[in-house]
């Protein structure tokens, strides 16, 4: 039962980056297209699940003083692995995400989950937590990418979705558009959560 709760909390109560405003750099940088948001989300989820599991396995072995250093090594190892795997099997996505693939290592969400959750909970729960938060992050990035792609280029997953005379609002795919769009989405989240109070 509680495993299910650990999974679902990532999808609403602690949905990153909207409810937990963390991991902003990749959120803003790669969401020019829904596809890139999805790719970034999946890569982050891969690292998050694996690091959560390993940290949970080692939680009784790692001495308190070197825990952050140990977590960083674990996370960085999975990031390097993700880099290599992307290069080997999804090269176009590797090119699109560019510098933000290695930067997954400093995504505060991952270190945050390792420290706040996986270091204190059993393996299955940590796995569920990583999966939930990762999936929530992936969905959020895909939605943000989708909105920016539709408004900015008139396409969604590279398919034209707007009427033919639609004039693309190219502001949305540039840096300022990223900030403004995320600002409006956070505002929207405020309205929704006020209507549906946390239980």
């Amino acid at each position: 039962m509680s495993v299910v709760k650990e999974f679902t909390k990532g999808l609403w109560q602690e949905l990153p980056p909207f409810r937990l405003v963390l991991g902003l750099c990749p959120t803003l940088a790669v969401t020019t297209m829904a596809k890139n948001g999805l790719g970034m989300g999946l890569a982050t989820t891969f690292v998050l699940i694996n690091s959560n599991v390993i940290v949970s396995v080692l939680r009784k072995i790692i001495p308190g003083k070197v825990r952050i250093a140990s977590y960083i090594v674990v996370i960085a190892s999975f990031v390097v692995m993700a880099e290599l795997l992307l290069q080997a099997y999804w090269y176009p996505m590797y090119e699109e995400l560019g510098i933000f693939v290695p930067l997954i290592v400093v995504n505060c969400i991952i270190l945050g989950r390792a420290e706040a959750f996986a270091s204190k909970n059993p393996i299955v729960h940590s796995l569920a937590d990583g999966l939930g938060i990762g999936l929530g992050f992936t969905i959020s990035l895909t939605i943000l990418g989708g909105i920016r792609e539709i408004l900015g280029t008139g396409e969604f997953f590279s398919m034209a979705v707007m009427w033919p005379s639609y004039e693309p609002f190219s502001f949305m795919v540039k840096a300022p558009g990223a900030f403004v769009c995320l600002g409006f989405l956070l505002g929207l989240m405020n309205i929704i959560s006020r209507r549906r109070p946390a239980h």
Partner: peptide, 24 residues
């Protein structure tokens, strides 16, 4: 503990690096 973690990570990564060389 730190040394073991670093060594394990190094071994695993060098394996992944070799294994993905051709497809990369």
């Amino acid at each position: 503990v730190l040394a073991v973690i670093c060594t394990t990570s190094g071994v695993v990564l060098s394996y992944v690096n070799t294994a993905t060389e051709a497809p990369r």
